[in-house]
Amino acid sequence: MAEEPGVVNPAVRVRGLTRLYGTRTVLDGIDLDMARGEFIALLGHSGSGKSTLLRALTGLDHDTSGHGELRVPDRRAVVFQDARLLPWKRVAANVTLGMRDTDARRRGQQALDEVGLSAHARAWPGRLSGGEQQRAALARALIRNPELLLADEPFGALDALTRLQMHALLRTLHARHRPAILMVTHDVDEAVLLADRVLLLDRGRITLDRTIGMPSPRDPATPAFADHRTAFLTALGISPQDRQQNTSGTKN
């Protein structure tokens, strides 16, 4: 990372984070500050360490060793690539899973309203489409009022059209609830479209860090968008010839 952004009272503060699997270094001295409400997308090839960084922040990495400073808020929520709804619980019960508050039901209904699933509250998850399941997973994350939302390729398993709808939904939810979001993706356009800041992870280090600074909703056809896209694709080692296969400007 080039310089200290100097965030006051950040949501996430990471300094010199190192993670090893056995003897293999997966994260190699990561420094990262996330402001409250900041939306960061994390790009990188498979094996670059993006998922490891995400898992370190979720606290789900039991079998790793390493060192470094890691400060994350207590109120965290995770959205996985698969919606991971319990098939034996109805959608509403999945959303409020583990919540003890007396008004959990009402809040569950409210969260389902927000993601447009209120009609499916009593459905079994197996009856929902992939996009609907992921909406339910978003509701399950949001109902916990997270200060930090961690999303591991949340739209990676969805078809292109559903993905566009989910992008709009995530933007809306982020604007309304303002959690800090760290979203792992390997889709450059998705990253530039949604995030305030996009990071590139390469062999366990952050090698590119760009603030997008365009008003939302963003138009992939603008030169500024193309500029960001080119920068990240080049850093990912995708040559201009490779890109010509795919001139439409949409998903790969």
Partner: peptide, 20 residues
């Protein structure tokens, strides 16, 4: 995957057993 989910939601051991 469900174990991981339960951990990420901060479920208690008993809730985990009962619900998952």
């Amino acid at each position: 995957r469900y174990v991981e989910l339960a951990e990420s939601l901060g479920l208690s051991r008993w809730t985990f057993v009962r619900a998952v």
